[in-house]
């Protein structure tokens, strides 16, 4: 494998030494472009108290192209589908090379605090969210308790 670019080394270093609150990200030993990530559910959100596992991969074109990020923990959220894929503009067309792993993870954490059912990825969840928000939030809490308990 080619040597890691300086940018990735620096980012990794900073993530290890000075991770944002509620977020951890550590490179995989086998592939330093592959990160094991955990994100804590934001306070006052249905995901509060949950610890969500994600995987993050830096493609060869990074940082010109965005990292690939996916939830590994099941989550009931209108912008995250069954496979853990995330609908987030900065991971797609709004990506800027000036963004970093930490900013991406913070954005994902913010997305948990502010679900957007008008721009859905998981259609059934989004529909539920719009029709009966209370029930949807209860469901999200239940899933958080069941799946995001850090085990």
């Amino acid at each position: 494998m080619a040597a890691l670019p300086k940018r990735i080394l620096k980012e990794t270093e900073r993530l290890m030494s000075d991770a944002p609150p509620g977020i951890s990200a550590a490179p995989n030993n086998d592939n330093l472009r592959h990160f094991d990530v955990t994100v804590a559910g934001p306070d006052q959100s249905p995901y509060e108290g949950g610890v969500f596992k994600l995987e993050l991969f830096l493609p060869d074109e990074y940082p010109m192209n965005p990292p690939k990020v996916r939830f590994l923990t099941r989550i009931y959220h209108p912008n995250i589908d069954k496979l853990g894929r995330i609908c987030l503009d900065i991971l797609k067309d709004k990506w800027s090379p000036a963004l970093q792993i930490r900013t991406v993870l913070l954005s994902i954490q913010a997305l948990l605090g502010a679900p957007n059912p008008d721009d859905p990825l998981a259609n059934d969840v989004a529909q539920n969210w719009k029709e009966d928000e209370k029930a949807a939030i209860a469901q999200a809490k239940e899933w958080t308790r069941l799946y995001a308990n850090g085990e």
Binding site: P5, K6, R7, L9, K10, P63, P97, A98
Partner: peptide, 10 residues
């Protein structure tokens, strides 16, 4: 002052 490029960190 030297300058570190925010994208490549060089």
């Amino acid at each position: 002052t030297s300058f570190e490029c925010p994208v490549c960190c060089i």
